[in-house]
């Protein structure tokens, strides 16, 4: 369901600013600063979000030049998550707790001892567990200012917007009925846009029809 093949499903955004004359340099810098990075298993980070090659998520040595397709910038967003599965953690913690109880000749461990075991087990398991990788393509038409993000997941969209705005110093407006109405390409008059702010839902059915239908239903 992406830009290159198959059906297309995406959220569309509009860049709020005009691009400066030297935009390529700025975008290249933003890309380089926010390239996707693998999570260090010996650290504490559980999540990492960055740019990658739209065709191959493990390629993070991208340059703007290779992402430019005429008026389109085509990049990938990669989100790595490194979390030890809860059930796995529980099983290994229990094993270590049993071992500790035997060694210490105790029937119950204190809360502190259990927490310490949990931290150690988690640290060890983090080095053995592989991160999950989610990716989605981004197609940015820098001429029209429309940006398509090929995922409809609310969480991924929020992370994408944050990454885009931080990387390029540009802000995005997501497309909703209200914001599309304000899209300059629609050319709606100021008067109509003003009435949009006060418009109320209208019933497409009149009272008599509704009552008759309800009576018929009963």
């Amino acid at each position: 369901m992406g830009a290159f093949q198959g059906g297309l499903t995406y959220r569309q955004y509009r860049v709020n600013q005009h691009l400066p004359p030297q935009w390529q340099k700025k975008v290249q810098e933003g890309l380089s600063r926010h390239l996707a990075k693998e999570i260090d298993p010996s650290g504490d980070d559980e999540r990492s979000v960055g740019w990658c090659n739209a065709h191959f998520a493990l390629d993070t040595s991208i340059s703007l030049e290779q992402c430019l397709y005429n008026e389109y910038v085509v990049i990938g967003v990669r989100i790595d998550t490194l979390v030890v599965p809860k059930r796995l953690l529980a099983v290994y913690c229990e094993r270590e707790e049993r071992r500790a109880m035997q060694e210490l000749k105790k029937e119950v461990l204190s809360r502190y001892e259990r927490a310490e075991i949990r931290d150690k087990v988690e640290e060890t398991l983090r080095k053995k567990v592989l991160p999950t990788i989610k990716t989605a393509e981004v197609v940015w038409n820098w001429e029209t200012g429309y940006v398509r993000f090929f995922s409809t997941s609310k969480g991924l969209n929020e992370e994408f917007v944050e990454l885009f705005e931080e990387s390029f110093g540009l802000t995005l407006t997501p497309e909703y009925a209200y914001t599309v109405a304000h899209d300059p390409s629609l050319g709606l008059s100021t008067e109509l846009l003003k009435s949009l702010d006060t418009a109320e839902p209208t019933a497409f059915v009149d009272q008599d029809t509704l009552i008759d239908t309800l009576r018929g239903e009963l």
Binding site: A3, F4, Q5, L8, Q12, Y69, N70, Y72, V74, V139, N141, T144, Y146, A177, V180, A181, D183, S185, L186, G187, L188, L192, S195, L196, A199
Partner: peptide, 29 residues
Amino acid sequence: QFFERMFLLEHLERIYKALFQMFLELRLS
């Protein structure tokens, strides 16, 4: 293929927005 896909997609978007514009021009009048 990518350029063709984007051309056809953007054409559809223009149609969709033109339809929404027609609706809004009536709805907000």
